[in-house]
C-alpha cells in the first residue's frame, strides 16, 4: 500500500497530467520529499522556506493539515492526501 496524493490541475504539469500519484513517507514532509524525487519541481510549489505556502491547502484524510501539525502531520499507508490551491483574492 502507498499514500495516494491528489494533484490539482495547475500542478499536473509535474505529474505528466496524472490527477493522482502515489508516494511514501511517515510525515507530510516526507511525502512531499518523496513526491519531489519522482516529480522534480513540485516541492517548490508547495513549500516556501520551512512551511507550506499560505495559499496551498493540503488535507490528510480530509483534515486540513494546518490543524493537524502542518508538515509534521503523521501519515501512513492507505492515507489520502489532497492538494488544493486556495481560491482567494482581493482588491
Amino acid at each position: 500500500m502507498a499514500i495516494e496524493v491528489r494533484v490539482p490541475t495547475i500542478l499536473r504539469t509535474y505529474t505528466g497530467g496524472e490527477k493522482a500519484v502515489s508516494a511514501a513517507g511517515a510525515s507530510l514532509s516526507e511525502v512531499i520529499d518523496h513526491l519531489e524525487t519522482n516529480h522534480p519541481g513540485i516541492k517548490g510549489r508547495l513549500i516556501e522556506g520551512e512551511d507550506l505556502r499560505r495559499f496551498v491547502n493540503v488535507y490528510v484524510n480530509d483534515e486540513d493539515v494546518r490543524f493537524t501539525g502542518g508538515l509534521g502531520t503523521r501519515v501512513a499507508d492507505g492515507d489520502a492526501v489532497v492538494i488544493l490551491p486556495a481560491v482567494a483574492g482581493g482588491r
Partner: peptide
C-alpha cells in the same frame, strides 16, 4: 471565510 470588503477566500473545508 475572510468576511472582508477587501479580500475573499473560500473556507478550507468548504473548498475540499
Amino acid at each position: 471565510a475572510a468576511r472582508s470588503p477587501t479580500f475573499y477566500e473560500f473556507d478550507s473545508s468548504d473548498l475540499l
